[in-house]
Design a protein around this nucleic acid. Structure first.
Lengths: 345, 345
DNA sequence: ACCGGTTTTGACAACGCTGTCAAATTAGTT
DNA sequence: AACTAATTTGACAGCGTTGTCAAAACCGGT
């Protein structure tokens, strides 16, 4: 039995040169169907499988896709669901393309994070990198990656989404819609819990909230805004603040589900009926949104589809098709569940 | 400027042969301190970084660690927290060893999962594979991986944990302890929600529950047992069943947190006070356990430490130390929170 | 200064594949 | 049949390391 068959073995069995085998394996054009078949047979007989290391070395590129995201363990533990969704989607695209997913959480607060990423890339030579928000809107990070020449698609980059290789969702519009929905239920005092200011996409949600208010003829008021940081705990804190004032809001819209869940917990603790006395809405539709009681009305950010699209762009882009992909927008959709209802009289 | 410096460039600058550079880079012995220093300088000056692909090809081994686990997306979405903890720990070990983590969820229900794994391994040549439960106790899976000759450490393999390269926790003992704790609170009717039978480690928890009952002088009763499948939804279903009988239990111990959280939700829905009327305990200590209200008493399974240990074994084992690691056991610890209390009178 | 033994170094062949480019074959025209 | 153009194939040189093994340098004891 000995060791694994190499391209030479296949070539010998098929009676062709190694280059021809290489062509067949890589689906390159200009191989006569009859030869392709001979080679395919030989491959099957020998159970040949190309060695990626050799391939990578020769082609200066691997079949790895790197997924880089903010390391949740570096400080506290916010939306883990966010990460799983991302991975899920990227894996989906990888699976069908025979690529593998390398995950690399990193702490953007660390000074040498740029070097760390460069090392990762230069050593592992991935076919491409997917950078999740909020890392995707930090020049330091993006520049470090781009300086290696490795294709890199950014998820929800927030600012200059005009640039290519970008996948985002319509945070602002969807948030406006949610706000209008709440207003449509009769709510006059709709509060908002903002998210981490480093996260540009999340910041857009605040803008969307204001749009929605205006479109519904409602006044914007600073007193109805609390500043969270995307974590469950900050959602609790913000809700406590918002519910302590005299004229309490009848609805709270949080910039993400973790915070909305935190707010819900506070409401439960305070004996406030949701949605009877208080409507609660989130953003992201992480698994937790369905597990709390009552289940959260939220906005389904298609994170998995976004990551899948990103991975697909990288994989395709690499195979020379060079389809220059402009910025892609995958729309978010409102999911109405049990935590929202008509405003109390 | 041009392209990346190679080992030749370093050798030239340092005035030595490439082999010597290689020695320095790999911390091999028998290099005179003075030469080492010259080489290190050259490396620093050129900002040289060895190319992993070339390394892998030459050494037939990469710096990748593969993490293989049951694909939660393949059916429904149970404990995502489980996976994140695993990743977290493995990443921890990787980080300090300059290795990278490849994640590969796979659906064990699929017929060709063995082939898929072999392909993954043969193409990517990881330094080692970590197999999480319940995959770690499926002969089909384990055999496929072992047939490639790649070192593979199993997490919570359940059955023959006597074999080497195994990291587990004391599921049974910890469950017994939890049961005794509940009994100590005065509970006489302690129900149990079992988990997925494919998951051997989870099955041990059921045994531990029985041990605990016996040790506390309590009778085991089939009517106090409901069969779940590890999912949140099954926890809900089981709780409904258990709470429907005449003599309802005063405590429910679920084989994992997802199911415990499901049970908690049912209790809330039914207006049953937790822990006043009903105590609830889980197992795993996933993030969700802290986010529900009241926070779940549970058993902290040191998943992250387990994965970290596993990764470390793989990384070390590869560097020739050959420290033959027997089965490692990392003990779980009880976390008492708000969901358990004295039995109602 | 000379010897055996040890430590340190270097030359060079792998490793298994892809890229380049030229040779061979086939197809298309006249 | 001769000739050109297009298609298909193959020889061979890398790609940047590690491994092997022999050569060179060094060491302590004569």
């Amino acid at each position: 039995m000995s060791s694994r068959p190499t391209i030479f073995d296949v070539a010998k069995v098929a009676g062709v040169s190694i280059k021809t085998v290489s062509r067949v394996v890589n689906h390159e054009p200009n191989v006569r169907p009859s030869t392709k078949e001979r080679v395919d047979n030989a491959i099957a007989v020998l159970n040949y499988r190309p060695d990626q290391s050799a391939r990578n070395l020769a082609s200066q590129r691997s079949h790895l896709i790197g997924l880089v995201y903010d390391d949740p363990a570096a400080y506290e533990m916010p939306s883990g669901g966010y990460i799983l969704d991302l991975q899920q989607g990227a894996l989906e695209a990888c699976r069908s393309a025979h690529s593998e997913l390398l995950i690399h959480p990193c702490d953007f607060r660390k000074k040498n994070v740029g070097i760390e990423l460069k090392e990762l890339i230069e050593e592992t030579r991935p076919a491409g990198i997917i950078v999740a928000a909020p890392l995707s809107n930090m020049p330091k990070i993006v520049r470090a990656i781009e300086s290696t020449g490795t294709p890199c698609v950014r998820l929800s980059p927030g600012n200059d989404s005009s640039k290519k290789l970008t996948v985002s969702t319509n945070d602002r519009e969807a948030s406006a819609e949610m706000t209008r929905y709440l207003a449509g239920l009769g709510h006059k005092r709709i509060a908002f819990i903002t998210g981490d200011p480093d996260h540009k996409a999340v910041a857009k949600r605040f803008l969307g909230y204001q749009d929605g208010l205006k479109e519904s003829g409602l006044e914007f008021s600073e007193t109805l805004v609390a500043a969270g940081d995307n974590s469950f705990g900050s959602g609790e804190a913000c809700a406590e603040t918002l519910l302590k004032v005299k004229k309490t809001p009848t609805a709270i819209f949080a910039a993400n589900d973790d915070m909305a869940a935190g707010a819900l917990r506070v409401a439960n603790r305070l004996g406030i009926d949701v949605p009877g006395q208080l409507s609660l809405a989130g953003f992201d539709d992480i698994a937790l949104a369905r597990q709390v009681e009552p289940a959260l009305t939220t906005i389904r950010q298609p994170l998995d589809r976004m990551a899948e699209t990103a991975a697909a762009m990288l994989i395709k882009g690499n195979s020379k098709d060079k389809g220059d992909d402009g910025p892609v927008v995958i729309p978010a959709t409102i999911k109405i569940r049990e935590s929202t209802g008509p405003a109390p009289r």
